[in-house]
Computed example of a mutant assay.
Amino acid sequence: MGAQKGRDLLLKVDAAGDGTFTTVAGLRARKLAFNAEPVDATDADSAGRWRELLAGAGVRRASISGSGLFRDAASDATLRGLFFGDVLRTWQVAIPDFGIVSGPFEITALEYGGEHDGEVTFDLALESAGALSFSEV
């Protein structure tokens, strides 16, 4: 597998909750991060006083971030409505030649910015709100 184009990493949302996914328009940068919080099971009998972790007991989570510019009023309205409505929706991240990560996320940050001689931009942050699935493409 060769290098992949960043623009092919797509962020999609089921905004209406009806199973229809729409690509979030205007994204110039996006990132998906997975994290696991370990559970420390170290005690006085741990070999050599090395830390021991309890397998399978930690909390897993995923974060999505993106930035770009709004391309139309519909994209703006969708993100704004989900944020101010405090709504959990199913989101997908399509990773080229890898697969699709899908599951419930909440928008935890929505920021707007702009220079006097440029376009209005936005930054978006999402946190997972339940179990995620992965499907190969």
Rank of each mutant, 00 (worst) to 15 (best):
A109W: 05
F21R: 02
L110W: 15
V87T: 14
V87F: 02
A3W: 14
R89C: 06
V59K: 15
F70K: 01
T78W: 09
G103A: 06
L132M: 00
D86Q: 13
V137Y: 04
G130N: 04
G56C: 08
F83H: 12
S135K: 15
D97L: 13
I107M: 06
L11K: 02
G81K: 11
F105M: 05
F83G: 01
I64P: 01
V13T: 11
F21C: 03
F70V: 01
P38D: 09
F98R: 08
A109C: 03
I64D: 02
F134K: 01
T108G: 07
L69D: 12
G2Q: 14
T20M: 06
A57N: 09
E111G: 12
R49N: 11
G130H: 05
N35V: 08
A131D: 14
A3G: 14
L126D: 01
N35H: 10
L69R: 14
Q4L: 11
T42G: 03
V24M: 09
S102Q: 15
A129Y: 04
A57M: 13
D43F: 01
D117Y: 09
P96G: 00
S63T: 14
E37Y: 04
Y112R: 12
S75C: 14
S128K: 11
D72V: 04
V24W: 10
S133I: 01
G99M: 07
D40L: 00
D76P: 00
M1L: 08
T22L: 12
G113Q: 03
D86C: 09
R30A: 09
S67C: 07
F98W: 07
E115V: 11
L27T: 10
G58Y: 06
P104T: 04
I107N: 04
L27A: 05
S75N: 15
V59S: 14
G68I: 09
V101S: 02
M1E: 04
P96L: 00
N35A: 14
D76C: 12
D97Y: 09
R71A: 10
A29W: 07
L88Q: 12
F134G: 01
L124A: 03
P38A: 08
S67T: 13
A47S: 13
I100W: 02
I64F: 04
A33D: 10
Q4G: 06
G118Y: 09
F34N: 07
G85N: 06
D123T: 15
D14R: 07
G103T: 10
R51T: 10
E52C: 01
A129H: 07
V13W: 09
L79D: 02
F83T: 08
R60L: 13
T22K: 13
F84E: 13
R61I: 03
R7E: 13
T42P: 04
H116Y: 08
I64Q: 00
S135Y: 06
L69G: 11
A77T: 14
G68M: 10
S102Y: 05
T90N: 12
L132A: 00
D14N: 06
E127Q: 12
R30L: 10
E111F: 03
